[in-house]
């Protein structure tokens, strides 16, 4: 609770002062609990995700880290039998409220998945998909959006001559960058990434990591990773999940150099998980 109050104070501070060390929160998670039928998968989660930062979520398999970020855009609802309590505030509205349209939420909170999942369509159509379903039909504007998004994901130069070819002709790393570009096309405020490099080779992984660094300028990013070096390299803050609870949440430097909880230390030093 105290943390929340502090954030609110900071909010005030930003408005009044020019020098802002602290940033505003895009997501405020308060007392979030989640059950899959009988399994209690998330327990009393309190987290505040800051604007234009990279927040890494780490933890052993089955600790609830994927479940957590899928709750942030309510993708978790695709699993039958899911129940939640508590609240997640996005721009001061509770997204877990039934009246919050998931389609609106997911337009503003984009997602990149574990395995690259482009649509079996042309590269162009993959990017244009989001704008199109939201009603943008003007060809000229779409062309512009496609180019801008592909440039934003640093893949434009590789694909500009074959925009009409099937996306499955691209390599795995390119496909994942295409998926990121697809996400950028609707200009979300937040991008959720669920272990985006786990299916990729080291070279492609590096490119995605560089891309994440670039995107941080304009987007708030939440990234789930089981690769601790990755979390240390690219994130500003890190949350350590264990058995459905947040054990520790702090600036990445602190988590990796001076963790407060012994379990965090055990995990990052590779003693379990």
């Amino acid at each position: 609770m105290s943390q929340k109050i502090k954030v609110k104070l900071n909010d005030q501070a930003i408005k009044s002062s020019d020098q802002q060390e602290d940033k505003r929160a895009v997501f405020e998670t308060n007392q979030l609990n989640l059950w899959y039928t009988d399994t209690h998968a998330l327990k009393d989660i309190n987290l505040s995700i800051k604007e234009k930062e990279v927040t890494a979520v780490i933890g052993p398999s089955g600790c609830g880290k994927s479940t957590y970020i899928k709750t942030l855009n309510r993708m978790v609802e695709l699993v039958p039998g899911v129940r939640t309590t508590g609240e997640i505030k996005y721009k001061n509205r509770n997204i877990l409220d039934r009246n919050f349209r998931v389609e609106d939420l997911r337009t503003q909170v984009g997602m990149v998945f574990q395995k690259p999942n482009p649509f079996p369509k042309s590269i162009y159509e993959n990017i244009a998909y989001g704008p199109k379903i939201h009603g943008i039909k003007n060809k000229k504007i779409l062309d512009e959006i496609v180019e801008k998004s592909l440039r934003g994901a640093y893949i434009w130069d590789e694909v500009k001559d074959r925009l009409n070819e099937n996306a499955y002709g691209l390599s795995g790393g390119q496909q994942q960058r295409l998926c990121i570009a697809r996400c950028l096309a609707v200009e979300p405020g937040v991008i959720l990434m669920d272990e985006p490099t786990s299916a990729l080779d080291p070279k492609s992984t590096l490119r995605i990591e560089e891309l994440v660094q670039e995107l941080r300028e304009d987007y708030s990013i939440v990234i789930v990773t089981h690769n601790m070096q990755q979390a240390a390299r690219i994130s500003d803050r890190t949350a350590f999940f264990l058995n459905g609870e947040v054990v520790e949440f702090d600036e990445t430097d602190k988590i990796f150099t001076n963790p407060k909880d012994s379990r965090t230390e055990d995990y990052i030093s590779g003693r379990f998980g």
């Binding site: 993708m75 984009g110 999942n117 998909y129 998926c179």
Partner: peptide, 27 residues
């Protein structure tokens, strides 16, 4: 049709029918 395609579509903010019409049926 693999589930990850419809997930990708929902993740973009598409409604169910949009996902059916534009992703699942073409595939």
């Amino acid at each position: 049709v693999p589930q990850f395609l419809s997930e990708a579509s929902y993740g973009m903010g598409a409604t169910k029918w949009q996902t059916v019409k534009k992703i699942i049926l073409p595939a």
